[in-house]
């Protein structure tokens, strides 16, 4: 009983540390980038792409490198299924729908589907994800980032004649631009990185411990406990932006995170050590991930909106998946 309590507390505390450390790391890295003259567009795209996904990446990386690859693969696949079926489902239900632009569906939706298919293709034909596969995944992400930055530049140019504040408009004073202290930012980047590594170490340790005490496979802990926990930033950003009707940010956060999780979350750890993939993940988890992605695209494409009832369908899909995975196939 005591070990249960200690492990669960360690898991919760480490999750909070990881999420906060990732935020500090990205926040200050962007500040340093700004101070050395890196384009705002590149920094904006990078911050939004990796800002919410570092916890998944960190835990996958530490899991794989510390000899618990099932946990790492579980975090990535579980997060991707939860992100779409759980988070987008809940957000669409609560906010009454999430509008989806053709651009996002075409570029990010298709890319999410393609990355899922690439991963499934590899794990179907090779017994483990090797460094060669990792290189392909990382190159694919680099290409995706290049397309994102190019698109963002074009979009910025198109909207450069955006409305200016009128003379009769009193604007809110929401900005208080602080000068960037490079030394402090650098220190915070290091602190963020240390927090991320230590937090992920503790999270993986507690995840492995809980799996042992509960007599469940590590994959299950990865697919559900760690996946849902590390996706907290995605949940708050997606739900928060859907409620404020910032639909593009809402959908973009999830699709960008899923692309990052596969291409970097699996790609980078595989550069260090070959990652074996459990049979059930090949035959069930990865196909479910592709299925929910395709379902999302189908539900959103018709009215250019993921409706409230589309959200309900995604939530039901997640519940069916969880029941099957936890009680039928386990």
């Amino acid at each position: 009983m005591v070990s249960w309590i200690v492990l669960v507390i360690a898991l919760v505390v480490s999750l909070i540390i990881v999420i906060k450390a990732a935020d500090i790391f990205v926040d200050n890295l962007v500040d340093i980038g700004k101070s050395v003259g890196i384009s705002e567009i590149i920094l904006g795209v990078t911050a939004s792409a990796i800002g919410t996904s570092l916890p998944e990446f960190g835990s996958a990386m530490i899991s794989v490198l510390s000899g618990s690859p099932d946990l790492g693969v579980g975090v990535v696949l579980g997060s991707n299924i939860w992100n779409i079926a759980g988070i987008l489902g809940i957000s669409a239900f609560v906010a009454g729908g999430i509008a989806t632009g053709a651009r996002e569906l075409k570029r990010d939706g298709l890319m999410t589907l393609i990355t899922g298919l690439i991963l499934l293709g590899f794990i179907l034909f090779v017994s483990s994800i090797t460094a060669a596969v990792g290189i392909i995944l990382v190159i694919a992400y680099a290409i995706y980032m290049w397309v994102l930055i190019k698109d963002e530049k074009e979009h910025k140019n198109e909207s450069s004649d955006e409305p200016e504040e009128s003379a009769s408009t009193e604007a809110a004073s929401t900005e208080n631009q602080k000068p960037i202290n490079k030394k402090r930012s650098l220190l915070m980047v290091v602190i963020g990185l240390v927090g991320l590594v230590v937090g992920c170490e503790v999270m993986v340790w507690s995840g492995v411990g809980i799996a042992k005490v509960a007599h469940v496979p590590q994959m299950i802990i990865g697919l559900f406990a760690l996946a849902i926990g590390t996706s907290m930033p995605e949940l708050v950003v997606t739900l928060g932006s859907a409620l404020k009707k910032l639909h593009s940010l809402s959908m973009g956060t999830i699709l960008g995170s899923n692309i990052f999780n596969i291409l970097i979350g699996i790609g980078v750890p595989s550069l260090f050590t070959a990652i074996p993939v459990e049979r059930l993940s090949v035959t069930f988890d990865a196909p479910v991930m592709i299925f929910v992605t395709a379902l999302l695209i189908l539900l959103s494409i018709r009215n250019k909106k993921l409706s409230r009832w589309g959200g309900v369908l995604l939530i039901i899909t997640y519940l069916v998946y969880a029941v099957l995975r936890l009680f039928v196939l386990a």
């Binding site: 911050a47 800002g51 504040e165 929401t174 950003v237 928060g240």
Partner: peptide
Amino acid sequence: TPIFTPAKVKEMMVQELKKRGTE
């Protein structure tokens, strides 16, 4: 924004809302 919202994402949200408000 809820707890755990990354600082840079919050900045982006504020910018978008401000743009919409101006419009």
